[in-house]
């Protein structure tokens, strides 16, 4: 295909210039040294500066960015770890606090219960003592009253007999008589 292009081009070239120039400018060997010389100079300069300066620079920039991104990701992971640790610590602390609170609550509850029981028992004892005392008093009062009634009955008996017979019976007789009457 390139041969075809060359042929066509040569024909066109000779036609265009009416055959005044000798064919293709590309095949004019007198220009080759100059082209090769300047190609060497320019391409050499391009290569030298690219290889020593620009490419390492760009490579460095890309590397730097990649490192930076990796660093940032690492740091983010580290921060995430720290956050998770903090979360764990917080939860642990929370659980501890909750346990402590429960312990305090149950201790308090037990303490209060014991106190209540003590107070209860004391109160009961006092009340029982009071009740006992009252009962004793009642019994005493009851026996006193019975005695008094007996005394009164005896006195009354003596008085009635005095009034009826005009003769006062002895105390013993009256007592015996009163005791004989069992209600």
């Amino acid at each position: 295909m390139s041969t075809l292009i060359l042929t066509v081009a040569t024909v066109t070239a000779t036609q265009a210039h009416g055959g005044e120039t000798a064919g293709l400018p590309q095949l004019d060997m007198s220009t080759w040294p100059s082209q090769l010389f300047w190609l060497t100079v320019t391409f050499g300069a391009l290569f030298a500066l690219m290889a020593t300066h620009f490419l390492p620079r760009i490579g460095g920039m890309i590397e730097e960015r990649r490192d930076r991104i990796a660093d940032d990701l690492d740091q983010a992971a580290e921060f995430k770890g720290q956050a998770e640790d903090a979360q764990n610590a917080y939860e642990k602390e929370l659980a501890n606090a909750r346990g402590k609170a429960q312990a305090i609550a149950s201790d308090t509850r037990a303490g209060v219960g014991a106190e209540i029981n003590t107070l209860h028992a004391e109160m009961e004892k006092t009340l029982n003592a009071d009740i006992d005392a009252a009962e004793k008093q009642i019994t005493a009062m009851k026996s006193n009253a019975a005695q008094a009634v007996r005394e009164a009955a005896i006195d009354t008996t003596q008085a009635i007999v005095q009034a009826l017979l005009d003769e006062a019976p002895s105390r013993d007789a009256a007592t015996a008589a009163v005791d004989a009457v069992k209600i």
């Binding site: 007198s30 220009t31 040294p33 100059s34 082209q35 010389f37 300047w38 190609l39 100079v41 320019t42 391409f43 300069a45 391009l46």
Partner: peptide, 17 residues
């Protein structure tokens, strides 16, 4: 003897680079 003249070709190489 070598002709290494600065030509239009050389100029465009220099411009490009």
């Amino acid at each position: 003897d070598l002709d290494v003249s600065f030509t239009n070709s050389a100029m465009w190489m220099v411009i490009g680079v």
